[in-house]
Structure formats: structure tokens, C-alpha cells
């Protein structure tokens, strides 16, 4: 898939990027290697050594913060991608500027490491806190199908402890500040009545999705307008049509009683690592169909309406 090169993709959680071992991720068809240098700064290069194309992620991170290819040991600087050292040529100090791996833009905020294929792109600012419930899954489903599943039936891709998503929507997908926003009615689990006979729903799930990256902020609210749960879900298109999903979540207002306790259990949010194909294929595209028109309208509109600073 061809991707807008100025987008920032949350390809890793902060915990996953270390100076112990390089991390291999993708942005679409582009393999990316991530690591943390000796100053603790996250770095991203193309995961392909320009010498003989070996993946740099099979190499190691040196004490001086350089990444070293595992094949012939060439070492690269993470900020510029420039070649700094060849093992048998230790006395050679400088290599021509052409001797470099492709470097990408990196920005780390709120517990996510975001990478932009354009190293000159400006990183979005985020005022978000770093949520402490975390997870990573790789789902074998395309990026757009994944988002469509989220719109049409969130239960296909995630679960919130003690909560059941209903098919009834309080607000259909619409544009708000450049984001695709919708709100779905939810019930506590176990149910008292099937959702079609319910007069008042006790909960809603509000989702705000960036129209291009699909990065989504979820808020679970009760009928007193208390935020019970916040989460950020970041689906990134990866190799072979897989969608790599990183997420972070935090409980909001403490809800008393049994239901609150249930929500507060081990991990309030679960993002599923696979989608049930038989459910997926029979899920009617309703919100997603509408979402497609909306997204197209949004993308045709002047650029600043989907400024990514809003997303992050």
C-alpha cells in the first residue's frame, strides 16, 4: 500500500524500544528498525543495511549508541543514518556522505514511539498522559478492514471487562476537528434485557479516529458523564497485510460497586490478537460504509482539517 509519507505512525510502545536489542517493525511495506541510543533517545532507520541488505534488526546496539549490522559489523548513527565504522577499517574516521542508511523521523510521547518516513516532518505535540495498561497484538487483517471492524462492531477486535457493546449508536460517524468521531451505546454485562428492549443505556463508548492513521482514542462513559476508561489504540499497517496494534489504557473515575470492581480487574481492556472470520464476514457494513464516504470527503478537503496535532 502506498502511504502518505508525512504521517506519524505509533509503531511501538516506549517499553518495547530498548538499548538491549533492536526492534523490527513495519510501516506498510517499509521495514523499520528501532532502538534506544546511549542517551536514551529512540532511533529509527530503514531495516536494511545498505552494504548487503541484511536486516539491521538482526544486529546489536553498541555502548556508543550506534547500531551495528550483524553481518559484517558496519555501524550506523541513528540520528543521521551515516556509516561510522567498519570493523577492519578502524583507522578510517570518515566515510562519504553517501554511505548511510535511510533515517526516519522519531518522536516519543505518552508512551508511544512514533515514526515518520519523512525525516524532516515536524512531530505532532501531544498533551496526553502515559497510560499504564499496555499491549501489542499483530492481527492478520488489513488496516482498513480493522478500522471498519471497530466501527461496525468493536467486539470483533476488543473487549472491555464487564461491558457489552450494543448495536445501537448514539451518534453516527461524523467529523469533529478533523477526526472521525462516533458514540455507541453499551450495557453492563451480564445483561438484564436484550439491548433492543432497553430504554436507557448506562454506558457509551466514544471513539475518535484519525482519518489516515486510524489511531483511535476511546472513552467509556457512564450516564452521569463520568469517564470510566481511556484508551489509545494504534493500528499500523505492517507487512503481508497484517495490522500491528499497540495500545495503552487507563481507568478514569473510580466507579463504586461490583461493576466498578469488575472494570478495575487485572486488565480492563483486551485487544484481540485475531478476528473471528465467520463473525467478520457476516458483520454488516453500516457505520463503515458511511465512514468511507466521510473519510473521502475529509481527505478531499483542505489539508489543515486533518492536521495530525489534533490526533495526538
Amino acid at each position: 500500500m502506498s502511504l502518505d509519507t508525512d504521517l506519524w505512525w505509533a509503531v511501538a510502545r516506549s517499553e518495547e524500544v530498548t538499548s538491549k536489542k533492536p526492534l523490527s517493525v513495519d510501516i506498510g511495506d517499509q521495514p523499520v528498525v528501532l532502538w534506544r541510543d546511549h542517551h536514551g533517545i529512540a532511533r529509527a532507520l530503514e531495516d536494511r543495511c545498505p552494504h548487503r541488505r541484511a536486516p539491521l534488526s538482526l544486529g546489536c546496539i553498541r555502548d556508543n549508541g550506534l547500531i551495528q549490522c550483524g553481518y559484517h559489523g558496519w555501524s550506523y548513527d541513528g540520528e543521521t543514518g551515516r556509516l561510522k565504522e567498519i570493523p577492519n577499517m578502524k583507522d578510517q574516521q570518515k566515510f562519504p556522505p553517501l554511505y548511510k542508511a535511510n533515517a526516519f523521523g522519531v518522536s516519543e510521547q505518552a508512551g508511544f514511539v512514533r515514526v515518520c518516513l519523512n525525516p524532516k516532518a515536524e512531530a505532532p505535540l501531544s498533551a496526553e498522559p502515559k497510560y499504564s495498561y499496555i499491549g501489542t497484538v499483530n492481527v492478520s487483517c488489513s488496516h482498513q478492514e480493522y478500522l471498519d471492524a471497530l466501527y461496525d462492531d468493536p467486539a470483533l477486535i476488543l473487549a472491555i471487562r464487564g461491558v457489552r457493546f450494543s448495536p445501537y449508536i448514539m451518534s453516527e460517524l461524523h467529523e469533529e476537528g478533523g477526526m472521525l468521531v462516533m458514540e455507541r451505546s453499551c450495557q453492563w454485562h451480564p445483561l438484564h434485557w436484550p439491548s433492543h428492549f432497553v430504554a436507557e443505556f448506562p454506558l457509551t463508548l466514544l471513539t475518535r479516529t484519525h482519518p489516515l492513521t486510524g489511531e483511535t482514542h476511546l472513552t467509556l462513559r457512564d450516564d452521569a458523564f463520568n469517564d470510566l476508561l481511556h484508551a489509545v489504540l494504534s493500528p499500523v499497517p505492517a507487512a503481508r497485510g497484517v495490522t500491528a496494534v499497540r495500545w495503552r489504557a487507563e481507568l478514569g473515575v473510580r466507579r463504586p460497586g461490583l461493576r466498578g470492581a469488575m472494570l478495575r480487574g487485572v486488565n480492563p481492556l483486551t485487544v484481540l490478537s485475531s478476528i473471528d472470520g465467520s463473525k467478520l464476514r457476516t458483520t454488516k457494513p453500516t457505520v463503515s460504509l458511511h465512514g468511507e464516504d466521510l473519510r473521502n470527503a475529509l481527505l478531499d478537503a483542505p489539508q489543515d482539517t486533518h492536521d495530525q496535532t489534533v490526533a495526538a
Binding site: 536494511r48 545498505p50 552494504h51 548487503r52 541488505r53 541484511a54 536486516p55 538482526l58 553481518y71 556509516l83 567498519i86 577492519n88 577499517m89 553517501l98 554511505y99
Partner: peptide, 17 residues
Amino acid sequence: PQSPRYMRHTDRKDLHS
């Protein structure tokens, strides 16, 4: 992992020492 990266021609030149 290196081999499939040579299966198709690319205009990107390998670097050499």
C-alpha cells in the same frame, strides 16, 4: 533474509568497502 532482497532488480546501489 538477505536473499529475497536480491530477487528483483532495484535502482538502489549496494555500498562497498
